[in-house]
């Protein structure tokens, strides 16, 4: 504990978010896997419209943090406040309904379904007709399906993917699959969007475009985005606040400038990078 860099008490709130309550406040979050503390005493605060970054070497516990926030795993320690509300006792489904959506490091699309169907599944809880109305093709079904169809195309147009609507998700190239995951997550109308290595496997021009789009998403939807990423250029460019994780613990927090200048970060993370 003593070695840790002091954490600013305000967390990572940007100026424009300072007046408002943070969207996410996780405190003392932790989980153990058979004695291994994969995440330990993890604290983070994310502002309402902030783009925040979570970085750290492989195996540091970043994905595990996402799994805790989205209740894929139940945390063994700590509390998560989403929009001021404790998510204790919620499951993955309830957390999504409460306002957290995510993408996965190892892509998890509905591969045998079309691109449009994938997005419509993101819209599932905002498509309002019952199973019976669906089977009997009541007017409500047609109305809501039409609305979902239009909304899906609208969301796909963020990444200029409308023309791929009828393609099977599993047949898309890697980069497009990552983008589709983001669209599907956005469709659930989250307040906080978690992106796990969104630029992984993308070429530099795709990454640059993604960077623009992440900003555009934040600006249009006025939501918070917390992202895990190894592409330092992307992270330093678009993140307003960054937390660095190593061996399950936060070793530094701050603005991109502060992180880049932090000796411990350089040692734990950037230093390693230089070697190879």
């Amino acid at each position: 504990m003593a070695k840790m860099v002091p954490i600013p008490s305000t967390g990572l709130l940007t100026e424009r978010d300072l007046g408002k309550a943070p969207i996410l406040e996780a405190t003392h979050l932790g989980i153990e896997f058979g004695g291994l503390k994969a995440v330990d005493d993890f604290n983070i605060t994310v502002g309402r419209t902030e783009i925040a970054g979570l970085i750290g070497p492989n195996g540091a516990g970043k994905t595990t943090v996402f799994n805790l926030l989205t209740k894929v795993y139940q945390p063994t320690h700590g509390t998560i406040l989403l929009d001021g509300k404790d998510t204790h006792g919620m499951n993955a489904i309830q957390v999504n309904k409460a306002g957290i959506a995510r993408t996965f490091q190892n892509i998890r699309l509905f591969n045998s379904l079309t691109v449009e169907e994938n997005v419509k599944l993101g819209l599932h809880n905002h498509t309002n007709y019952s199973t019976l109305e669906g089977i009997l093709r009541m007017p409500k079904y047609w109305q809501e399906e039409k609305r979902a169809h239009e909304r899906a195309l609208e969301l796909l147009s963020i990444f200029d993917m409308q023309d791929l609507a009828d393609h099977k998700a599993g047949s898309l190239p890697y980069g497009a699959q990552r983008r589709l995951e983001i669209v599907r997550a956005l469709a659930t109308e989250p307040k906080l969007l978690l992106l796990d290595e969104p630029a992984a496997g993308m070429n530099p021009s795709e990454t640059a475009e993604l960077m623009e789009n992440i900003r555009k998403i934040r600006d249009t939807f006025q939501i918070a985005i917390l992202l895990i990423e190894h592409d330092m250029q992307l992270v330093m460019n678009i993140c307003e606040g960054i937390a660095v994780l190593n061996y399950g613990k936060i070793i530094a927090k701050g603005t991109p400038e502060e992180i880049q200048a932090n000796p411990q970060v350089i040692e734990a993370y950037l230093g390693k990078k230089k070697e190879d």
């Binding site: 989205t70 894929v72 999504n96 309904k97 959506a101 509905f110 591969n111």
Partner: peptide
């Protein structure tokens, strides 16, 4: 197709 992904979108 993917149970975890289905849960992640609130299904």
């Amino acid at each position: 197709d993917n149970k975890i992904a289905a849960q992640s979108v609130g299904i």
